[in-house]
Design a protein around this nucleic acid. Sequence first.
DNA 1: TCCTATACCTCGAGTTTCTATGTATTCAGC
DNA 2: GCTGAATACATAGAAACTCGAGGTATAGGA
Lengths: 108, 108
Amino acid sequence: MKKQNMEHTRLLVLGLLSSGDMYGYQMIVELERRSDGTFAMKEGTLYPVLHGLEKDGLVDAYEQAAPTGRMRKYYRLTRKGKEALKTEAQDWRRYAAAVDAVLGVSFA
Amino acid sequence: MKKQNMEHTRLLVLGLLSSGDMYGYQMIVELERRSDGTFAMKEGTLYPVLHGLEKDGLVDAYEQAAPTGRMRKYYRLTRKGKEALKTEAQDWRRYAAAVDAVLGVSFA
DNA sequence: TCCTATACCTCGAGTTTCTATGTATTCAGC
DNA sequence: GCTGAATACATAGAAACTCGAGGTATAGGA
C-alpha cells in the first residue's frame, strides 16, 4: 500500500480558504470535487494541519451553527495567511516548472 | 529551518535516467542544473532511493571507470523502470493539474 | 601540504501523512 | 422507532520520507 502524495496540504488548504471561509469537513469534500477526485484528504491529515495553521496565525476559526443546528468550526484566512498563500503558490509554480523541466516536458 | 519539498524523488531520478545512464553524484549536479537551482537533492536522500529502485528492479547498476581512473557506479533504466516512469509521469501531471485546479489557476 | 571537488555510503532525527479509533448529530429508509 | 450512512469534530501511533551529520577515499589546484 503506497502512500498518497499529499504533501502540499498547507498550500491546498490556504488555496481553498482564499475562495471563502470553510469548515473542515467541507474542505475535504471541496478538495475532492475541485481536484476531480484526485485528492482524498484524510481527517487525520487535515485537522492537525488546520490547528497548525491556526497556531501560526495564518487562519483563525469561529464557530457557527449550520441550518440543521449543528455546530461547525469555520476557518478564515488572516492577512498573514493571504501573504503565505501568495508565497507558497509561487513556490509551487516554481516547483512544478522544475519537475517538468527535469522530465523534459515540452510546452512548444 | 523548513524542510524542502523533494518528495517526487523517484520520479525525478527515473526522469533523469530516461535521457541516459548516470551515476549518483552526476544526478545531483544534473538535477540542480535542469531545475535551474530549484532542486538540491542531498546524498542522504538520493542513495537510499537509488538502492530502493534497484531492489524494485526499476534500475540496474554497473561500474565503470572515469577517465581519471576513479570508479563510478552507473544506473540504467530497466524495461520495468521505463514503464514505471510512464505511469508516474502521468500521475505527476494529474497531481499538478489538480493542485492548479484547487488553487484556481486559469489557463485561459 | 591543504582545501575543494568528486564519489560513494549509512544512521538517527525530524517532519509529514496515514490508519485506526473515538465521540456525537442528522437524516433517509424500513 | 431503529439502523446505517453521512456529517463533523478530534487524537494517537505507525509508517514513510528527507535531511543533517558523519564516514571513507581519490584527484587536482593553490
